[in-house]
Amino acid sequence: MTLKDNFIKGFFKENAVFVLLLGLCPTLATSSSAINGLGMGLATTFVLVMSNIVISLVKNQIPDKVRIPSFIVIIASFVTVVDLVMSGFLPDLHSSLGLFIPLIVVNCIVLGRAEAFASKNNILDSLIDGVSMGLGFAMALTILGSIREILGAGTIFGIDLSIYPTDEKGAPVTMLMFILAPGAFIVLGYLIALINKIRNV
């Protein structure tokens, strides 16, 4: 398998969210706006790439029986790094993602790739796998976040599109539901249906 195939596989063919349906909790929770989705996607990408690299380096040193706890400790360390760096340099994003930063630890994508790919392949392949899976996840979150932000607030990345009529006070009348919890489920449901349709044709 060439590096390019490896990349396309993770980014598109086996997209974590749309095809494998992994990591749905952060997908639904942090995609209330395009910027939140992108931030969460990139944070997860960092953890995924770093943990893939380290696990593929130490895979021969770890006894088979304790490999899952060892992987979790490695992943949790990088999650702590992301948590601290983000609260230092991007406090706004950190507070809007909130609880879901520490919860990257239990994101099934990260442990799934560690177990299924990085523990069996060399560093370069694991690196590419982490980058492609992570960016695929970030892309999915950004698409979902953009749709929800456009429908629910009439903006994208915070830029006003002024597509909605305004009420007598001048505030836009938006479909707030799409920013709240129900919108997340419904938009993702229709997106996956659309992707199924495209893949089957």
Partner: peptide
């Protein structure tokens, strides 16, 4: 195209709306 997960997600959305 909606069978399986997509319809389940939409149903969950409507349930969330009820909650």
């Amino acid at each position: 195209g909606m069978r399986g997960t997509p319809i389940a997600l939409v149903v969950a959305g409507i349930l969330a709306l009820a909650f």
